[in-house]
Design a protein around this nucleic acid. Structure first.
Length: 492
RNA sequence: CGGGGCGUAGCGUAGCCCGGUUAUCGCGCCUGCUUUGGGAGCAGGAGGUCGCAAGUUCGAAUCUUGCCGCCCCGACCA
């Protein structure tokens, strides 16, 4: 065993780190808080990105790219947004280095190169984008403006975790402008649906759609909608957000349009984003102590074929079967890899591809070929069965669908059994401590109560679910009247 | 930024308390042969600023001081 993974039970955090590193998704880097996304991890991100990008375009959005740097004077224009991010901004103050006269071979910041105005490295791009939109929008005919950008952003975090929270991360941010509030709200909700659809159908990860409480709302937003997922350790994870920004940014950046009656008004805005954090979510939602379990629809490799042979002659016979099989599989759109390298033996390959979470493994040996069979192993259940070489591609395709469905169902039933009602404070605390997951409880609607609950239990309101059932009750902490339950959880 | 832990070959480690030739072991790597249905075996081989810098000493991986880096837990946050 050359690649030991810490078990989830032993140390969940270490299990997560082991998985990321040993499966080859990412690596630590020489920069504190920043990671290297390795080819396998980046391939996974590309698959996620491509699907999302397609969905954005289907809903009428176009991609563009805005600068990494935001002049401080622009950044501070929308006050709430600026203050919300102030504590985690990297700031460029100089534009030049010079040879250090006191230390050979060393460079120093040239004190004479101080910028007249500091540049903020974007933690998000509302400021630079709304400053630009001002010149793009004059008339209702320019609306709606539906733009997305794929970019990196920097948030100077105290404590980082691979994929879940790094100082620099990759994401997409959609920024739209609309003529009416209704239209902007509809856009906000539409993108939330896109995210939920992606999470459930591609990541096989069930999510709860909801609205954030005021405390958890995006700085500068009127409403923040979110999708919340549940990880195997019972902690919640915000997987995506979609914000209705009202006219806050339009007012801060003076973006007005003339309507059909030639009346001037500020435009209505939205922004929405998901990041490489989704990879962390994917890992924690499905994987086990043997490695990753990737959903077939996103896996960089969906099927790996491992030949088992003694000598050149057998290898040649296997090749004769595998080459056409590869063609068949590719013809039905399956991403297949034939690992016929002779550097490692079959057993090593089995373990390695399990670690990497490849959904299906096909082993082909001389014995199988005599019987016109292959051994098919699925990663999610570890089950093995023999399948005929005839019509194999179709059966593998079916199997991939079944795996996609199975890991979704598994995650779904875990999630369903981890939403628990609490009506008494003691139960509330005990559920958080002992069971984890979402605790559904009444709340008096005040930020103060939410803060106190967070202080006492480390749990926050993850969201108020959309279409939430209305029922009379009493706040779990204060006993004040409440009309609905909200979801509490400890979160990443 | 507080608490804890760690830094010795690509990875994981022994040695450190109690200073003393050539720094231990495993995995990985290279060569060759045998192997191949769950992380192969044998033989040979390469690979080291012991995190960095000062200090103590005849002599430092080991003792002292300072610094750096990373991981885990907390505060903060997506």
């Amino acid at each position: 065993m050359s690649k030991e993974i810490t078990s989830r039970q032993q140390d969940y955090s270490q299990w997560y780190n082991d998985l990321i590193i040993k499966s080859g998704l990412a690596d630590y880097s020489a920069v504190r808080g920043c990671m290297v996304i390795k080819p396998y991890g980046y391939a996974l991100w590309e698959n996620m990105r491509d699907e999302l990008d397609r969905m954005f375009k289907e809903t009428g959005h176009q991609n563009a790219y805005f600068p990494l740097f935001v002049p401080k004077s622009l950044f501070e224009k929308e006050e709430e947004n600026a203050e919300g991010f102030a504590k985690e901004c990297a700031v460029v103050t100089h534009y030049r280095l010079k040879v250090n006269p006191d230390k050979k071979g060393a460079l120093m910041v040239d004190p004479e190169s101080r910028l007249e105005e500091e540049l903020i490295i974007r933690p998000t791009s509302e400021a630079i984008i709304w400053n630009t939109y001002k010149s793009w929008i004059q008339s209702y005919r320019d609306l709606p403006l539906l733009i997305n950008q794929w970019a990196n952003v920097v948030r100077w975090e105290m404590r980082t975790r691979l994929f879940l929270r790094t100082a620099e991360f990759l994401w997409q941010e959609g920024h739209t402008a609309h003529a009416t509030a209704e239209e902007a709200v509809a856009e906000t909700k539409q993108m939330l649906e896109v995210y939920a659809d992606f999470a459930e159908h591609y990541m096989a990860m069930p999510v709860i759609k909801g609205v954030k409480s005021a405390n958890e709302r995006f700085a500068g937003a009127v409403d923040t909608y979110c999708i919340e997922a549940l990880m195997q350790d019972g902690k919640a994870l915000q997987a995506g957000t979609s914000h209705f920004l009202g006219q806050n940014f339009a007012k801060a950046f003076d973006v007005k349009f003339s309507d059909k009656q030639n009346k001037l008004d500020y435009v209505w805005a939205t922004s929405w984003g998901v990041s490489t954090r989704l990879i962390g979510a994917l890992v924690m939602a499905h994987s086990d102590d043997d490695g990753l379990i990737l959903p077939p629809r996103l896996a960089p490799i969906q099927v790996v074929i491992v030949p088992i042979f003694k000598g050149e002659e057998q290898k040649r016979l296997i090749d004769e079967k595998v080459v056409p099989l590869m063609k068949e599989l590719k013809a039905v759109g399956i991403k297949v890899k034939y690992d016929d390298s002779d550097h490692t033996r079959p057993g090593w390959k089995f373990a390695e591809y399990e670690l990497k979470g490849v959904p299906v493994r096909i082993a082909v040996g001389a014995r199988d070929i005599e019987k016109n069979l292959v051994e098919v192993a699925r990663r999610d259940t570890k089950g093995k069965l023999n399948m005929s070489l005839d019509g194999l591609a179709i059966n593998i395709e079916k199997l991939l669908h079944a795996i996609q469905e199975n890991i979704y169902n598994k995650a779904f039933s875990f999630r369903e059994t981890h939403i628990t009602n609490a009506d008494a404070w003691d139960d509330f605390v005990r559920l958080l401590d002992e069971k984890g997951g979402f605790v559904s409880a009444h709340w008096d609607g005040t930020g103060d109560t939410e803060d106190r609950i967070k202080e006492m239990t480390k749990a926050t309101i993850r969201c108020i679910p959309l279409n939430n059932q209305q029922e009379d009750g009493n706040c779990i902490l204060t006993g004040k009247p409440s009309t609905q339950r909200v979801l509490f959880a400890r979160a990443y």
